[in-house]
Amino acid sequence: MGAFLAKRFLGVLPVIFGVSIVIFLLVQLAPGDTATVLLGPQATEAAKEELRRALGLDRPLAVQYFQWLGRVLTGDFGTSIATQIPVLDLVLPRFVNTLILTAASLLLAIVLGYGIGFFTALRANSLFDRIATSCMLMAGSAPPFWLGLVLVLVFAIDLGWFPVSGMEDFAGDGGTMDLLHHLVLPAVTTALGPAAIIARIVRSGILDVLGRAHVRVARSKGLQRRDLLRRHVILNALPPIVTITGLQLGYLLGGALLTEVVFAWPGLGSLLYDSITARDLPVLQAATLLIALAFVLANIAVDAINAMLDPRLREI
């Protein structure tokens, strides 16, 4: 397993290098001149020239990139244009909040997806199956930001069960229960889409295995339903399902970014939104890089889980 992980990490290094190039180039996409953006439209030409030299903006692009990379590797993402706070101090606490939301959503997506997928497969083509499958299909096609607003409308405004937005109640004394209370709606919003896809895959995976010869043999030998499912169906259906679940991570992270904006969840998504509104490019770069890195690491973790489940994959 150690060798497998080492190989995966080495293989991912060039990709991370490429990711850093893309993120560096993002700033080049921005309209207007960086010095003007930083100093404001009233700045004199001489002052702009001075700043350009100080920031190295007069050098060739490749030189600028390696200078930027050198700074980023030491954790220096520059200073936020909007708030004048070092970008890293701004980004790290937000990153933790995004991880909380993403982890909760992933857990919920897995529980919902596997649960619904499993039970709809066992009662395939029943009324329950039809209703659950249609509901999940709708949830999977709904835009997450809109789903969030509908949930707010029903469960926060009409029923008053959950808070409308934020991560903690400033009037109360905070704590885990308060966090969980605030977490429910954003997590459900983010989880429903991926849960729908997982449920679909689990359902068809289980149905596929149920139709195979070894299951028929086991059944004709008089094996009890529970043992049959546990020993012959679930384990065989699992590996492709884990892969698909892993592939939901990207979708989940993307959804979480939008959900954060809807619920004013203080994570990287709402920071990204603020930085775009304020044209705060260093913050945009840092937030994008952190999420991309987390995504790459999560993908390696999924590969590792798959390799644990299926020893054949460790050879690669």
Binding site: G18, L26, A292, F295
Partner: peptide, 19 residues
């Protein structure tokens, strides 16, 4: 592969956000 390393929505937001 480099573009695959980003969650789809994130990269779209970042590109559109910079422009």
């Amino acid at each position: 592969d480099v573009i695959f390393a980003f969650p789809m929505v994130l990269l779209a937001i970042a590109i559109a956000g910079a422009m």
